[in-house]
Amino acid sequence: MINRFFMGKGGVGKSTSAALMAVFLAQRGYQVLMISLDPAHNQSDIFERNLTDKPLEIFPRLFAMEINQQTWIRAYLKDVHSHIKKTYSYLTSFNLEKYFSVIKHSPGLEEYALILAFEKIRKDYSHYDYLIFDMPPTALSLKFFSLPSLSLVWIDHLLALRREIIRKRELITKVKMLGKEFEADKVLRKIEAQHHQYQTLKDTFEDTEQTQLFLVLNPDKLSHAESLRIFNSLREIDIQLFHAVYNKRPVDEYCADIDPVFGHIPVLNFPFSKIPLIGLTNLQNFLNTNKSVLENQKIFL
């Protein structure tokens, strides 16, 4: 199973490029699941179907679904809250009630909701050959990819501090209780579990055999500038670009070459389409007319 992410500046055609890739792969006989992580949810409009959080068959071997961030945030907070109610005394849990009504608006939960959805999808739909992710706008996408690395920095520190506490606590127990058995520390176990979770995600994002990033850009200065920033931000967290997608490239007209920075990255040139790429038929027609765009590229399993 390969995860393919389509990201780029707003309006460059991430959703259309992702849809074209999904249709192309399904036509070639692969099992494909297209997942929209973008709150704008353009895939419903592109495929002219009402997508939900369950895969819907669009075309033989091509399925699509949409992820609602708010649903995932609510479910996650409900889970934490019910866990707290079980483990805390009534009064402490009661005093925390008021915090939970505002936590759902905390920064950072949006990208975590996407991470939870990503993990669940990978687990539940591992029988697909390709999972194609239509990503949200740049800022949220970058937060999504940097969340594991950033969390690991914190977790490493918390882990060291917790181990120090446990070491000292064991010393006290040994002296006081003459070496009775120690109770396993639930917090330490949870931090270790978190470490494993984020390390696995980080490894998945850094492994180009599992994660392939397509950066979509247009032949204009703003799109180039933002793509460059995305490229550099990803490089800082050791995530490589798999392909650049030069979308809406004018045919028979002068068009600026792709920025030399992306020179070593393979480029897919999607020409400008005069017909809006909406509906399965239009997408298929576009692929038939522009066969060479994807056929000659090394973009398969």
């Binding site: 996650y76 907070l77 934490v80 866990h83 707290i84 079980k86 483990t87 805390y88 936590i103 905390s106 920064p107 950072g108 939960l109 975590y112 969340l147 950033l150 969390s151 914190w154 977790i155 918390l158 639930k186 917090v187 949870k190 931090i191 978190q194």
Partner: peptide, 12 residues
């Protein structure tokens, strides 16, 4: 730390 780290540890 990121909110989810705190929230995951909070029950304990």
């Amino acid at each position: 730390p990121p909110m989810q780290i705190s929230l995951d540890l909070m029950p304990f």
